[in-house]
Design a protein around this nucleic acid. Structure first.
Lengths: 231, 231
DNA sequence: CGGTGCGTTGACATTTCTCAACTGTTGTGG
DNA sequence: CCACAACAGTTGAGAAATGTCAACGCACCG
């Protein structure tokens, strides 16, 4: 609900789970909520880092611009996740651009002098921030592992298997958080290759692509593709 | 020197730079130095994380084993760098294997109950650990950016440009910390492709590969290869 | 209604991989 | 000290995967 205290909402993020109430209250005092429209800018590369962010709803992309203007997406961040901790706590500046990718995106913006003081003086908070950075690192390592696999089909399979899925037994149903174009960029392939890959899998009965919610009749096939080197 | 106090040695790591002496002394009490032989195991995936490590000398590889036994290197860590912070501070277990890759590798092993207590109670130390995690994250993001470039030549060029180099003007000389085989794996290509790539660059006068210390007559050529999409 | 951009498909070009052979180096046991 | 095995690195030829370019359908939006 809108009326729920910010502290309570913050406490539900993996970030701050288990943090004492008094601390959450103090963090909440350095927090403000702000809605964003699709495509709206959150921060620019090089800007002084004023805060880090928790995604309350919607989605965000963090990206860099290469010298020739091409956009290089570093992360897609979704509800429940956080970003820009490192910028605030260590770098001092945002090392990339960020903008909302979904219409009704809402962010908790946590920063300011009081927060930094709290962070420096309150070990429980530092520890929480450390955990959150560790989660990020784990994420990044998984991503590197994914990209290190030469074959595009294996990268796609690994990506799908890491996504939250619902289903029974070996059958899965997956919610894709990305458009085809974005997904292709994430996997470091061109959209055409992705399209053909999905087409072939569909013909072989490996996936049934229902728009953004593909089903997997038997996840063991996918696991096979992800590990070994065939598709 | 061997006889130099551990605290002083620790203070030189980017990790602990600027940390007060009294704190360094206390950290030093949770630190032990240990030498490793080439190929010697440092820890195994799944093992309880007892410490994190600073590399005093030599080199270490952190890797996973895929189900079919293939080795997937996540990082190569060298003198002055650290690893396994996240394992100790958050995960509780090592998420990968690590072994020494160089004959006279020496590690500072920092851990134990006292260290964790210190970390939890001493905000200055937590802050230092946060910075170190941020350095790691930055490293990982660079790596992802590198791997996201489709073309192998661009990946190699970017890798070379990120390495510490010495030289004047546009001419560079680079110390490769990896063997050809390892470098190829790092770039997600097969050694043959790397070999051919270097050969072509040599013919074109882009690099002069003197064993592990290649020279670059004009780094602008490399920058061109890294950014645009030609070689 | 017309434009704009995503997603798909086809034909073709290019890159990279695979397999195989060969070289040079290193370390080991006779 | 000399085979000799083991392995990293190189090279070549052909196969396979992926990228490029171009065309088209389709949905969405002004």
């Amino acid at each position: 609900m809108e009326s729920e205290p910010i502290a309570v909402q913050l406490g539900r993020f993996p970030h701050f789970r288990g943090l004492a109430e008094d601390l959450l209250d103090r963090v909440a005092q350095s927090t403000r909520i702000r809605p964003y429209r699709t495509g709206e800018e959150i921060f620019r590369q090089g800007e002084k880092a004023r805060a880090f962010f928790l995604v309350r709803a919607g989605g965000v992309k963090v990206y860099r611009l290469s010298p020739d203007g091409r956009e290089q997406v570093l992360h897609h961040v979704h509800a429940g996740q956080s970003f820009a901790e490192a910028a605030l706590l260590s770098l001092g500046r945002f090392p990339a651009h960020a903008q909302a990718t979904v219409a009704s995106t809402e962010l908790f913006e946590i920063g300011g002098e009081e927060f930094l003081q709290l962070f420096k003086s309150e070990p429980r908070l530092s520890a929480a921030m450390v955990s959150s950075l560790c989660i990020w690192m784990h994420e990044l390592v998984e991503r590197i592992e994914e990209l290190s696999v030469a074959r595009a089909s294996a990268r796609l399979a690994r990506y799908l298997l890491r996504l939250p899925a619902h289903g029974e037994g070996h059958a899965l149903s997956i919610d894709l958080p990305l458009s085809r174009k974005e997904l292709a960029a994430h996997l470091a392939i061109v959209p055409e290759t992705l399209s053909r890959l999905l087409r072939r899998w569909e013909d072989d009965g490996v996936v049934i692509p229902k728009g953004r919610v593909p089903s997997i009749p038997d996840s063991r096939t996918l696991i096979g593709i992800a590990d070994r080197e065939e598709d």
